[in-house]
Design a protein around this nucleic acid. Structure first.
Lengths: 167, 167
DNA sequence: TATTGTTATACTCTATAACTATA
DNA sequence: TATAGTTATAGAGTATAACAATA
């Protein structure tokens, strides 16, 4: 039962970016219907979710946490504000655009969470709750590791030969 | 040192789709420069990589393995064929579009693999080769689990309420 | 009739650069 | 001068439906 390094994977499945992509695709397919049915896009949902556990967040933090580029975030702010799901919050630094969930936004968030919980529980059962936790830990630690690598690049591992004329 | 279920993650980090997205973003950032420098997009690269370990594959299989929708794959075929990296292969079933790597395609593949290997080794060292294997196993098994769930949906877990008018 | 793939189309996200405003 | 965010813009991916060809 224990996953004892059975490295019986095909080469293709040993590619980390591809494995992450395919797992995400499968997982997303499972939960996306709940998001869709409330007329939210996945990036919009990530913003709501990030705001759900914080009083308020600024655009830069949200962009980093939700993996959304600033220009996209600007549009998402506009859309979610129009729908009354988020609202701007006053801030010492007038440059910062800080937002929080409105009551309607929080209600919608709770609703989606509630609706999708059976699927989540079912996945946790089928996959194993402990293994799911382990996977989440590994994923977050992988991200930390890569980010640290970014900060301390090594000579011989430096990639961007940047050869040909820009794409 | 052992990752002993320290579930000290924030709620936001416990979302599987988001954790997968963020890890992928970080990992991609590490390897994408090598792809970019050869004027390839990530989807194009996934196709080359999938073909590198198979004699030939048809569009349907590639679409599934590489997480690319058929219309995108059509464009990618056209582009990679024009660049002489892949070539069509005759097939019993005339409906199927089967392709293989050309010699130039294989050479390019090998080149990219070679160039990015130092980064991969560095990541494996920093993260731990064993944990990397474990992560890959978990990711692929997660995908299998979700796909099985898709095939055997349960009553109370069925999602698509499909309420409002289409997005 | 079912399957495979292409075409058409609309929309969203991705990615950069240039710009505004605050600090 | 540096930072935060917006605007503008080009390009690529996402997603559906309609169609053509083959089985």
């Amino acid at each position: 039962m224990a996953p004892q390094h059975k490295t019986s994977l095909r080469k293709f499945e040993k590619s980390l970016p591809i494995a992450l992509l395919r797992s995400r695709e499968a997982t997303t397919r499972l939960f996306k219907p709940f998001i869709d049915s409330h007329d939210l896009t996945m990036p919009q949902w990530r913003v709501l979710r990030a705001l759900a556990e914080a009083e308020a967040l600024d655009a830069k933090t949200l962009a980093e946490r939700c993996v959304i580029l600033p220009p996209s975030l600007t549009r998402i702010f506009r859309c979610l504000t129009q729908r009354g799901l988020i609202a701007q919050v006053d801030c010492n630094d007038a440059r910062r655009h800080m937002v929080r969930l409105t009551d309607a936004g929080r209600a919608l968030f709770e609703e989606v969470v509630e609706e999708s919980e059976p699927s989540y529980r079912r996945l946790a059962e089928a996959f194993g709750a402990e293994r799911l936790d382990m996977l989440l830990d590994l994923l977050n630690e992988l991200r930390d590791t890569v980010q640290q690598m970014d900060n301390t690049p090594m000579e011989d591992a430096l990639p961007p030969l940047r050869r040909a004329a820009g794409r």
